[in-house]
Design a protein around this nucleic acid. Structure first.
Lengths: 255, 255
DNA sequence: CGAAATTTTGATCACGTTCAACTTCAGTGG
DNA sequence: CCACTGAAGTTGAACGTGATCAAAATTTCG
């Protein structure tokens, strides 16, 4: 009765986004084709550009194919809170496009290529494609759980664990989209951004990173992070991967 | 062309949940009837009970009709992070029911009456009712934005603003479900819980609350909070209500 | 009415910020 | 190719905030 969740034909060249949706609900060839058809255009945004600006209206979704970006908010006191790191397979304009004016800003960290779909078109597609709607619901719940984890991080985890937890989470997400090795990865973020993500100052992030090195849990070379002791790190951070989503029987049935 | 969003017949006795969904997409009588039909049973949970326990599997959604609860996580170091306050119209089991085992715990703060729907049944209903699926997507995006706000609160807002922001947010949510007066409300939370919500210690919450009183922004009598200077409070906290959701034209069209 | 939970208060202290200087690195144009 | 420039990383010292702990006062509830 239990079914393997990730039965995806390896031959097929799927986008990270489609790959991700497949985890949540099985999409037919037609469903995927419909999604592709809704894409209005594919574009590349250069490094360090703003894609979405807080306060402005957006009615577009950008499905990221490659590259990295940050979703953040600037406060009146000059501080910045980074809400999330956007990786391939993520959607820019979520949740911003669902509100009158964008709640947050998004800026690219690297060149980003993305597929643009107007929100209305996307919602219409969801209306016509129940399994896509279900998959999207699942996708958003997943996002919600990630945000919840972030709240716990920032609210109650001590700085060292916070940094450790963040490294593990980033790695597992990068791994899922094929942007990381088994136990090392290229970190596309400055320590200042990590600080703004975790609610710490940049110098303190630096100290915590060094402490993790001293305790032989990680090693760093330029921007490459290697987990010297993945198990120890997981133990320290009490990291539990979010990914293993469970699929109820009903979700696989076709409409 | 612009349509009033909350055109709801006042005569009709709608649940806070349905009222909320109506904001996101127009549901037909049949849609609502279908939702009611999916309810397996209505139940009342007594004060201070656990509804969901972290680590256990849940496959049920509980739509809250009345009462309050907290969604929280216990850390290994004995600390607790409260993720959100659950009010009437909210769903218990979200996002927990979407994962193999529940990510968080939920405990009631007061007696809670709720309508139980098995997740599978609910998803099947979404599959058959596109407008419900769309409304739910919207609902979850809204939840996501609330969590994002929470991250900003805990990560970068100074304690005084944090508490002020929290009071305003709670009030506006209570107001939306008819559990608050224009500028005062009964606060169902101990200072310890507020602390665990905002990442502060209980004594410090106490101090901040007193400071707000001293600055004549609020007044408190037992558990009743009154906004003495709502505008000043909003200014201090830079509070921007999340509620005004904008409805794209497409969302109102029927399938 | 008594017991338990919650609020309030104060004193101490550690943690993490802040700020500034310095170093290293990466990218660019001469 | 190297010198230059700006960004990012690193370090240290001083400071202030908010945690912690404990005790007292008050409220709530059984």
């Amino acid at each position: 009765m239990a079914v393997a969740v990730r039965l995806i034909r390896p031959a097929e060249e799927s986008s990270p986004f489609v790959l991700r949706l497949q985890q949540y609900a099985s999409l037919s060839e037609a469903d995927i084709a419909g999604l592709q058809a809704a894409v209005e255009r594919e574009l590349t945004i250069r490094k360090k550009r703003d894609v979405v600006l807080e306060g402005y209206e957006t009615r577009k979704l950008h499905i990221v194919k490659s590259g990295f970006a940050t979703r953040y908010k600037l406060l009146a006191n000059g501080k910045r809170q980074v809400l999330s790191i956007i990786l391939p397979g993520d959607i820019i304009g979520m949740p911003s496009a669902f509100f009158r004016s964008s709640l947050y800003s998004v800026a690219t960290l690297s060149d980003v290529t993305a597929q643009m779909i107007p929100l209305i078109k996307f919602l219409d597609l969801c209306r016509r494609t129940p399994s896509l709607a279900i998959a999207m619901l699942w996708y958003t719940e997943h996002e919600l759980a990630a945000y919840a984890d972030h709240i716990v991080d920032v609210g109650r985890r001590p700085p060292l664990e916070r940094v450790a937890h963040f490294l593990l989470e980033l790695h597992s997400r990068l791994l899922a989209v094929g942007c990381a090795a088994e136990s090392s990865f290229e970190m596309p973020l400055s320590q200042e951004i990590i600080g703004d993500l975790l609610g710490l100052s940049a110098p303190h992030v630096n100290r915590m990173l060094h402490q993790l090195k001293e305790e032989n849990l990680i090693s760093m070379d330029h921007r490459r992070v290697t987990f010297a002791d993945p198990e120890g790190l997981r133990l320290l951070a009490r990291f539990e991967p979010l990914s293993p989503t469970s699929l109820p029987a009903g979700a696989r049935r076709s409409a």
